[in-house]
Design a protein around this nucleic acid. Structure first.
Length: 272
DNA sequence: AATAACACCTGTGTGC
DNA sequence: TGCACACAGGTGTTAT
C-alpha cells in the first residue's frame, strides 16, 4: 500500500489524535510481523507521545522513554478508532490512549514492523544508513551525481534504493522516470547532469503533489480517517502497460526490473 | 564491492 | 464452482 506520500498522509492524519496524549496500554494481538514485536515495546505504556515524526517510510512515535518505530510494509495501515471498537481480521496491534481513543495497526501480509528504540536519535540499524529525504534540500542533482557515479545498475532500481534516496517506491519511480523522459533501464552512471536535474525536479514535484492529493489509492489505501487518496487519477504510466502514452499516443511498454512491474513509453523515454 | 535473486505473507484476479 | 498460478504499494538477507 504505502509509499512515502501514503505514509506522510497517515502521519498527518494520526498526529493530531496522538500528540501529547498519554498511552494507557499496548495490545499486541499478533506479534509475528516482519520481525517479532519485541516485549520492550510495552515501555510506551504510561508515556506521553511528544511528537509523531516520519523518516523514509518509517513512522516514529517519540516519548521520554524511547521511540516506537512503525513500518507499514506492503499492506499495513493505521486508523484512529474509539478504544472499544472490536478488532477485525488482521488488526494486530492497538495503542490504547487515556482519552478513549486508540491507534490500530492492521496488516494482512504482515510485512510491516513495530519496534522500539531507546534513543531519540535515528541510530537504529534500520534508520542509520538511509539516504536523504526526497523532499529535503539534501536531495539534489549534486547528491545524485555523486551517489550514481559509475553505477551500472538501472536508474529505476537506484531510485528505489534507500541508500540513495528514501521513499520512492514502484509507483513513483515509474512516474518520475516518465516525467523526466528517462528510460528505466538506463545505467545510472550514464545519465547526464541535466537528466539528473530533471529527475530530482520531478521526484520532488510528484511526491509533493501526491501528498497534497491524499496519496494514491490503488486498492485499499485510506488515511487515518478512512478516506481514500486521489492521486491514482494522475498516474501516467503505472498500471497502464499496453495503454496509450498520455504524451504521444504510443503504446506503453511493460517489463520487469528487479521483479517489479516497470512501465514506460519507448518514444518519450528513449534508450540512451 | 556491487548487483541480482530470494525471502517473508495474505488477498485478489485470471484462466482453465 | 474449484483449483493453480501470477501478481501486488517493501526491503532485509542471501547468493552470485
Amino acid at each position: 500500500m504505502p509509499e512515502l506520500p501514503e505514509v506522510e498522509v497517515t502521519r498527518q492524519g494520526i498526529a493530531p489524535h496522538l500528540s501529547q496524549q498519554k498511552v494507557k496500554k499496548l495490545i499486541v494481538r499478533n506479534p509475528s510481523l516482519r520481525w517479532p514485536v519485541p516485549d520492550i515495546c510495552h515501555n510506551i505504556e504510561g508515556q506521553v507521545i511528544r511528537a509523531i515524526r516520519r523518516r523514509a517510510k518509517y513512522l516514529l512515535l517519540d516519548t521520554e522513554a524511547g521511540v516506537t518505530i512503525v513500518h507499514l510494509g506492503m499492506s499495513g495501515s493505521l486508523r484512529i478508532l474509539a478504544s472499544d471498537t472490536p478488532p477485525e481480521k488482521h488488526d494486530h496491534i492497538d495503542l490504547v490512549l487515556d482519552n478513549g481513543q486508540m491507534l490500530r495497526f492492521n496488516d494482512p501480509r504482515r510485512f510491516g514492523a513495530w519496534l522500539w528504540h531507546e534513543l531519540p536519535e535515528l541510530t537504529h540499524p534500520l534508520l542509520s544508513k538511509l539516504g536523504p529525504e526526497p523532499l529535503s534540500d539534501d536531495f539534489d542533482a549534486v547528491h545524485l551525481v555523486q551517489a550514481l557515479n559509475n553505477k551500472t545498475k538501472a536508474i529505476k532500481l537506484c531510485l528505489m534504493d534507500n541508500h540513495i534516496v528514501v521513499g520512492v517506491g514502484n509507483i513513483y519511480a515509474n512516474e518520475a522516470l516518465f516525467a523526466a523522459g528517462i528510460h528505466p533501464q538506463t545505467a545510472a552512471g550514464k545519465l547526464s547532469h541535466e537528466q539528473l536535474l530533471q529527475l530530482v525536479v520531478h521526484v520532488k514535484r510528484i511526491l509533493a503533489n501526491a501528498i497534497k492529493q491524499g496519496g494514491t489509492t490503488l486498492k485499499d489505501f485510506t488515511n487515518a480517517d478512512g478516506k481514500p487518496g486521489y492521486f491514482a487519477q494522475k498516474l501516467h504510466v503505472y498500471g497502464r502497460g499496453g495503454e496509450t502514452c498520455t504524451q504521444c499516443g504510443n503504446l506503453l511498454s511493460e517489463i520487469k526490473l528487479g521483479q517489479r512491474a516497470t512501465v514506460f513509453c519507448g518514444l518519450c523515454q528513449a534508450k540512451q
